[in-house]
């Protein structure tokens, strides 16, 4: 009983500490990356190379005055940011950081919540994401917030459909919803040359999922929820200090989780990066650590990709976004699913 409790506690702390602890680093990378792409200097005053800038931000958020505007619905206004971060953190419980390992003769799974459903649990928990944003927009009692929240919600629901067609196709290919099984199958090699990553088996699905991630996490080019030229700042106009920081964190956690899911099903997940096999041969006990490092590196590359796209592609118009989601991505996703099913059926006969 106590052992079980301790096990869950340790897993929870680790799985929460890694994404929450890396948010300041991602922020700094985003700022310096943006500056680099735009040929600016970027924040370089606080600490060496400006590395303490996120720390300064944290102090700013903590010491700013808590303002609650008089026209908001107070109870919902206060719980909305908390709910937002909470819903964003939920899917983390189902994501594996490394392969199941043994302590003594007991098999330990790295996920906090281990069920037979794997990817479906993660997806179900992600589906609760829009509630925090909707509640914030409504509780702010402000037209800009309301419009931002409605836009964010409509766009998340629309692109969830395109993503779900990809997830079903992936589920058919690997024949299991368990993320560990998916990673194991991806580490086999295809024709002896390239790894059997999902991206080679499902190239169309991979592109759909990638576009879906950007729309789901409300990032440019799909950040119409906070289009500042039209809506000031969208659903978090009325929020300041730490309450605003919670929304900010929720957005980054959302990005991290969707990227982790993306690399897990399309880029071999915690499968070792090339060159690491040499270390494992000499030091077999380091494999789980190296697996976690591999996964985190892949997610870090995705995070850089987010920054890259942000400063390369301008924002869509809202009708273009909706047309892309419903009239382009969804039909492509359905056709992709149909082709996948037919190929699997023909190969099994």
């Amino acid at each position: 009983m106590l052992d079980e409790f301790l096990e869950i506690l340790i897993k929870t702390v680790v799985i929460l500490a890694i994404p929450l602890g890396s948010i300041p680093l991602i922020l700094q990378m985003e700022r310096r990356g943006a500056a680099w792409i735009q040929k600016r200097v970027g924040p370089n005053r606080v600490g060496p190379y400006g590395l303490f800038q996120p720390l300064a931000d944290v102090f700013k958020f903590l010491f700013k005055e808590e303002v609650v505007p008089s026209h908001v619905k107070k109870f919902f206004y206060i719980i909305a940011p908390i709910l937002s971060l909470l819903m964003a953190l939920l899917p983390l419980a189902g994501l594996p950081l490394c392969a199941p390992f043994f302590i003594g003769d007991q098999k330990v799974y790295p996920e906090v919540f281990r069920s037979g459903l794997g990817i479906f649990y993660v997806f179900a928990a992600t589906a609760l994401g829009p509630y925090g944003i909707l509640l914030a927009g409504w509780a702010s009692n402000n037209k800009f917030s309301m419009l931002g929240a409605l836009r964010a919600c409509a766009q998340m629901i629309s692109y969830e459909l395109a993503i779900s067609t990809t997830i079903v196709a992936i589920f058919f290919i690997y024949g299991s919803s368990d993320l560990h099984v998916m990673v194991e199958k991806q580490n086999e090699s295809l024709y002896g040359i390239i790894p059997a990553w999902g991206v080679f088996l499902q190239p169309v699905g991979c592109v759909l999922f990638l576009v879906g991630i950007f729309a789901e996490s409300n990032r440019l080019p799909f950040d119409l929820a906070e289009g500042e030229s039209e809506l000031v700042a969208g659903y978090h106009v009325e929020y300041s200090s730490m309450k605003f920081a919670l929304f900010y964190m929720a957005e980054y956690v959302h990005m991290i989780i969707l990227s982790t899911l993306f690399v897990t099903i399309f880029f071999g997940g915690y499968g070792l990066l090339p060159g690491m096999g040499f270390v494992v041969e000499n030091l077999p006990s380091s494999i789980y650590f190296l697996q976690a490092i591999s996964l985190i590196s892949k997610v870090a590359i995705m995070m850089w990709f987010f920054v890259w796209v942000r400063w390369s592609i301008p924002r869509f118009r809202y009708d273009q976004l909706m047309n892309l989601g419903w009239k382009t991505l969804l039909p492509i996703g359905l056709v992709n699913l149909l082709v996948t099913v037919i190929v699997i059926y023909l190969r099994s006969n």
Binding site: L117, A127, I157
Partner: peptide
């Protein structure tokens, strides 16, 4: 999971 995905999520 289906309850959360379909009823709560959609």
């Amino acid at each position: 999971t289906i309850q959360i995905l379909v009823y709560a999520g959609a």
